[in-house]
Design a protein around this nucleic acid. Structure first.
Length: 472
RNA sequence: GGCUCCUUCGUCUAGUGGCCUAGGACACCUGGCUUUCAUCCAGGUAAUCGUGGGUUCGACUCCCACAGGAGUCACCA
């Protein structure tokens, strides 16, 4: 049987590192096993839903460059892939569960539930959860309640004793005492929408999902799902709970750790290849002694067994290194195109400017080796456009400049690096000013078109200027 | 607090009983190349494999206990 896996995000926020990593691992698993990767939109939370997030989802994955085989935008045999369009299905299955006495109608309102919570916290007996008040309502009472139009939900009957066992591909066998499972979770909300638990289980079954791979934070809902599969008499997909991604402080990665949304990384000048490679490498190894892998390589090399059980801390520094590596792998032409939007954004050049295009392209060999992020390009290339370099990030001690030698090299059409530190060499300031015109003139004469690029975004403009001229 | 999961350099990892006096990568330090910076190359610092017990001729690798960390306890997913 061929494998079918899915990424099932909820459009209640922009796609972030954690979600994308789950998607990537599902994708790699599908590819490595000749299976199918499916996208399913779990948009059952109407209060947090936004179209904007759906758009962000598509944008993100188009940018990242790995895509699903079946999904809302491209269709497939299990359509529709949007849960709000499968509305009726869930109601049907929830009621089926009630008919089988595996679930029940509950008329408790927010008021009662709130009070219950208060009492429980006062009693300090620990969180007991729902008190199963409506679990044993008579047939007549239920009928009357519904007839009266009272708000109601459908809750799952969690067995009061015994235990629930499930197997995790990565973690092994996990046992839960039924009394420790959240008492009687809601399956169908009072607005008629399913909760995650119902929709997730029903869809995974209906869509023929064979492996469920999701973050470890979902472990506590696994026993509950097991109970539902059993109640329906369905075979449960194989479970595999993925290690989580943590911030520097060891807590679940979130906004306060810095950039977490993929579009933020994109704006900051990260390459999708670098992000994908780094994320995949986090908590997983592909081949001994190597860190850099293309998507295609990972598709072939991926094995679930190589996943780590322990959570991993997201290291922005190492990601930057990956990014620098991938930037250096780009051809000049590719990189120039990649960098262009950042230059335009910085106001250095216009979008349509053939001369600027040529200039950029010629500067690439120099720019390429000193970029970790595409967003650093404007700082590095500012001089090319007659603007001062960006402020210094750090200082360094320059060596003494020999203008005569510099000009000599220029004339030989060699790579020239000129460094001027006015504070260190007081006399140089005067000399430089006096001869800068001469230098510029020689530049013009020698090299057409000009091949000039500022080197070193860390050079402070008032103190240093650094120009490098490329030879042919 | 209950329950569950996890535990090799600061970080990401290799490692499935002897090849480990623990290997690689990021970061950091030193040197080389480059009249600067960056890139690149070479080298270095860094884990008594969370702690304590076992099992075994032999344990990072198997078992147990403890400790620490994390996750989760909604009509959110």
């Amino acid at each position: 049987m061929s494998t079918r896996v899915r990424y099932a995000p909820s459009p209640t926020g922009n796609q972030h590192i954690g979600g994308v990593r789950t998607a990537l691992i599902n994708y790699l698993f599908a590819r490595s096993s000749g299976g199918t990767f499916i996208l399913r939109l779990e948009d059952t939370d109407r209060t947090r839903y936004s179209d904007e997030y759906v758009k962000n989802l598509y944008d993100t994955f188009q940018w990242l460059g790995f895509y699903w085989d079946e999904g809302p935008d491209i269709g497939g045999p299990s359509a529709p892939y949007i849960q709000s369009e499968r509305f009726a299905i869930y109601k049907e299955y929830a009621e089926k569960l009630v008919a089988m006495d595996k679930a029940y109608y509950c008329f408790c309102d927010e008021d009662r539930l709130g009070k219950l919570r208060e009492e429980q916290s006062l009693a300090k007996t620990g969180d007991q959860g729902y008190d199963r008040h409506c679990r044993n309502l008579g047939r007549d009472e239920v009928a009357a309640g519904i007839a009266a139009g009272r708000n109601h939900v459908i809750r799952l009957k969690i067995p009061m004793e015994g235990k629930t066992v499930f197997h995790d591909r990565l973690l092994g066998t996990i046992e839960w005492k039924n009394e420790d499972i959240s008492p009687d979770p809601v399956l169908l909300k009072s607005d008629g929408f399913p909760t995650y638990h119902l929709a997730n289980v029903v869809d995974d079954h209906l869509m023929g999902i064979t492996q469920v791979m999701r973050a470890q934070e979902w472990i506590p809902s696994a026993p509950l799902h097991r109970i539902m599969y059993d109640a329906f008499g369905w075979e449960m997909p194989e479970l595999c709970h993925l290690p989580m991604v943590l911030g520097q402080d060891g807590h679940k990665l979130s906004k306060r750790h810095g950039a977490t949304a993929v579009n933020e990384f994109r704006k900051a000048g990260y390459l999708p290849e670098a992000l994908i490679n780094y994320i995949a490498h986090l908590g997983c190894s592909f081949e001994e002694g190597r860190d850099l892998f293309t998507l295609g390589e990972m598709e072939k090399l991926f094995r679930l067994e190589k996943l780590n059980k322990a959570p991993a801390i997201f290291d922005y520094q190492k990601l930057e290194w990956f990014n620098g590596q991938y930037i250096r792998l780009k051809s000049d032409l590719e990189l120039a195109a990649l960098v262009k939007p950042f230059l335009v954004e910085a106001g250095l050049r216009a979008v349509d400017d053939a001369v600027a295009d040529a200039l950029d392209l010629q500067a690439m060999p120099l720019v390429k080796e000193r970029l970790k992020l595409l967003s650093e390009a404007p700082g590095v290339m500012a001089y090319l456009y007659g603007k001062p370099a960006l402020p210094a990030a750090e200082e360094f001690i320059p060596k003494k400049l020999d203008l005569g030698a510099a000009i000599a090299m220029l004339e030989e059409n060699l790579v020239l690096v000129r460094l001027v530190d006015f504070s260190d060499i007081p006399a140089a300031e005067e000399r430089f000013k006096a001869r800068s015109v001469e230098i510029d003139a020689k530049l013009g004469n020698l090299l057409m078109p000009l091949r000039v690029a500022v080197t070193g975004s860390r050079v402070s403009p008032p103190l240093f200027e650094s120009i490098r001229i490329l030879g042919n």
